[in-house]
Amino acid sequence: MTGGAGYIGTHVYIELLRAGFRPAILDNFSNSDPAVLGALEEITGQPVDCTRIDLRDGPALSAVLAQGRFAGVIHLAALKSVPESLLHPSAYVDNNLGGLVSLVRAMEAVGPRALVFSSSATVYGTPERLPIPEDAARGFTNPYGFTKLAAEQILEMVATADPRWAIGTLRYFNPAGAHSSGLIGEAPVESATNLFPAIARAALCRGAPLQLFGSDYPTRDGTAERDFIHVEDLAAGHVLSLRRLLDDGRGHRVNLGTGQGHTVLEVIRAYAAASGRDIPYRIAPRRPGDVARCVADPALAERLLGFRATRGLEAMCHSAWNALIRAEMPRQARARAAARPGWPAPLQRSLI
């Protein structure tokens, strides 16, 4: 699992173990903290198989895959900040597309050829209709979105050229929330530009008030509207996608969302209610590269994979706040507070 030590990757790792797989993590830790591996061990009660590697190092990557024990790959490793991509587009192309091409070459050389790819709703550009179905026109409004669209097109060409490939393309909408244990979640680091960690910083009174980018969008309260999906629901979608690839060898391309949109102001109010804190914010101009509304049509994912999001905005806010508070505790107190779930046995097929 590439990028497996990141926010989404850690939650996918746990779901894979629950499903009976034995996942291995590859990560260069450019956007994650090695300390998260200890949290994964606390949650699962098992050691974590992790290799520090940059995907663009082709020989090192091929050496890992050549171990020959992997049933499939879940590719999560990418830079993902829209504002950052506008400032450093070449870095996004180099990392997101360079890493993908290196991975595909290694998989072509030594296998496997089952791949779950982390895509994004940004491939829809400015949506022509809502909710957005998978056959909607594709486009992009920022360099990050360009890299996801280009990656999808590369993988489509790869699958057309070689029918041995089975590729599941998962178009994420807006992941939010944290694991039910409270031991992992999305850290409210200063550089994070996603809405939930930015709200968390404001709730903790760290730095300036939350910037609300745009209040004149054509939405019910003037703020941008997004489809937020709980990260644990999102993680479960990866397991369903992988199983489908391994069971029938056929690729798919689906949205992972809820079909329900929430505006930025609605999220702020929900987070304030969950945390019991005031969320100070100020209105700022619209941010380049943002769209007014982006909501998924999740029907195809349910039909093909049996996927349905089960957690709403309230659960996202409560779990995110719980993880944030636990992160503020001393380590010993966190360990005593953590609820360790049970794990099914035996483990089966491996994947990276």
Rank of each mutant, 00 (worst) to 15 (best):
P133C: 05
A208Y: 08
T160H: 13
A161F: 06
P197C: 04
A192Q: 14
D135R: 11
C205A: 15
A203Y: 05
R138L: 14
E134T: 12
L170T: 00
G207L: 12
W165S: 04
G182S: 10
I199A: 02
E134H: 01
A208G: 10
F173S: 00
P131M: 04
E152W: 05
I167V: 13
H179T: 07
F146E: 07
A202F: 03
E128D: 15
G139S: 14
F196Y: 15
M157C: 12
A161P: 01
T126Y: 13
F146Q: 10
I199T: 03
Y172W: 14
T126F: 13
L130C: 06
I132L: 07
D216E: 10
G177D: 02
F146T: 04
P175E: 11
I167K: 04
R206M: 10
F173D: 03
S181L: 08
D162V: 09
T147G: 03
A187I: 09
A166M: 02
A202L: 08
G125L: 07
P209H: 12
T147H: 01
A161K: 10
L212D: 03
G168L: 00
S191K: 14
S181M: 11
L212S: 01
Q153S: 07
E128G: 15
S215I: 09
P175K: 08
A150E: 02
L210Y: 01
E128M: 14
A137T: 12
A161S: 12
R164N: 13
E186C: 13
A178S: 14
Y217L: 13
F146N: 02
